[in-house]
Design a protein around this nucleic acid. Structure first.
Lengths: 233, 233
DNA sequence: TTTTATATATGATCCGGGTCATATATCGAA
DNA sequence: TTCGATATATGACCCGGATCATATATAAAA
């Protein structure tokens, strides 16, 4: 709990935060930082801990200071699907807040993750006062929506191995995290762990990746993998 | 072009519009209507005409006065997928506008459709001036995002006949339009026309629907169809 | 009415990939 | 270092539903 001596108090300084310019809320204006410092609640979650649960009522939103979070839906049949991964600087839980709906997914820390919780009324006040903040969050919601639409269409247009290839590239491009499990890739790519394992074996045989060091997946020839994706079509 | 004698002039009155309270832009405030009246451009599209094309640059957004529009993605392989249907009162083309991206989908009129085009800078001015408008559009974008997420997860969790049943119920619940083709249902439900046809034949045999009058699909026992969906799980 | 384009219907075929069973490897805890 | 839990690996099986071919029905136009 105290490995980071600067961040243990809930009222530490937004001005000193490395994420203060990475999202719509925190980058609004310097005068907002004082407000946020008063109301925000900083928390640390260990790997596999749940930040919020599907079907619960949102009471604010979270900003991720460090770490990695997945948004996971569990269907009635018990299958898990990963909607999005969120890294440092990202806002978390805002879709349900703005839609006035319950959380549609659970937010689970993949690795040790630090978040700032900002209460609902503070969030709304900021958007009332700073229209540019609203336009910025509109932008990121709009991009999320495009990614969600693409997820559905590629579920139909692309076969499992193409989706897995795209997952490898996307996850490597967007996150520091290295230790993706076959199950995590499957739940993100819309397939099963077995299919991921078989496909990775093929990718290794084709010289795209290397799996000889433990469970790690090293992209040996990312460029060739990208070309394969475009040439296939 | 002149079948509707009240709506032929581009500067007709927002105040008299039946949709003036149904979306974030038009319902912002009475004083906005004067501004909109000056800049908006009213257009009528016939069935099958294209309002905007995938990959083109948005120059504003549209409000649907009447009719029905589908947002359709065409993949590299030539397959069409319907992301969303939009009816009267809905805003159209705002996702790409706020994301500062090109249109990801084409907007196609399903039936005769009347739209008001509102230029980009006017839209941005309104959101700058009226924070509540921004919060309202945030709400509808957030709901769109949930629907998109659900579309992806149900593509995996539910089989084709379940998705087709849901499509029938959803489309009937949300739109006046009655003449859905098997192809339209397929592209919305994430399957093929053949599978829709076979499934509808089964639904008819099971007493859920009636197809004896031409090509129309009449929901004979909607409640039983809903029950079937929940009992299956 | 007849014609013609398009939508609907139905059968045959086939395969990607999900599922289940089982074996082995890896990593962290003791 | 050993052990146990969990992740990875691989084979066998099977089925939903896509695809292709072809026939028929429907609606709108001539």
């Amino acid at each position: 709990m105290s490995e980071n001596s600067c961040n243990t108090k809930p009222t530490n300084d937004c001005e000193k935060c490395g994420q203060k310019m990475t999202n719509a809320i925190c980058s609004t204006a310097p005068e907002v930082w004082k407000l946020l410092d008063q109301v925000k609640q900083k928390n640390i979650f260990k790997a596999h801990q749940v930040i919020f649960y599907q079907d619960n009522e949102p009471m604010g939103l979270y900003i991720i200071s460090s770490g990695l979070v997945k948004l996971e839906v569990t269907s009635e049949s018990g299958q898990n699907h990963t909607l999005r991964y969120l890294g440092p600087g990202s806002a978390l839980g805002y879709r349900s807040l703005f839609a006035h709906e319950k959380y549609q997914a659970s937010a689970i820390a993949i690795e040790k993750t630090e978040v700032c919780f900002i209460p609902k009324n503070t969030v709304m006040e900021i958007f009332q006062q700073y229209p540019t903040a609203a336009l910025k969050i509109l932008e990121s919601l709009s991009k999320d929506l495009r990614l969600a639409d693409e997820k559905w269409t590629s579920q139909m247009d692309k076969d499992a191995s193409e989706r897995i290839a795209e997952a490898l590239i996307f996850l490597q491009d967007h996150f520091e995290h290295q230790n993706w499990t076959r199950k995590e890739i499957a739940e993100w790519a819309g397939t099963t762990p077995e299919t991921v394992i078989r496909t990775l074996a093929q990718f290794e045989a084709d010289g795209y990746i290397d799996q000889s060091q433990g469970r790690a997946i090293r992209l040996v020839n990312k460029q060739k993998l990208i070309e394969k994706l475009t040439l296939d079509r």
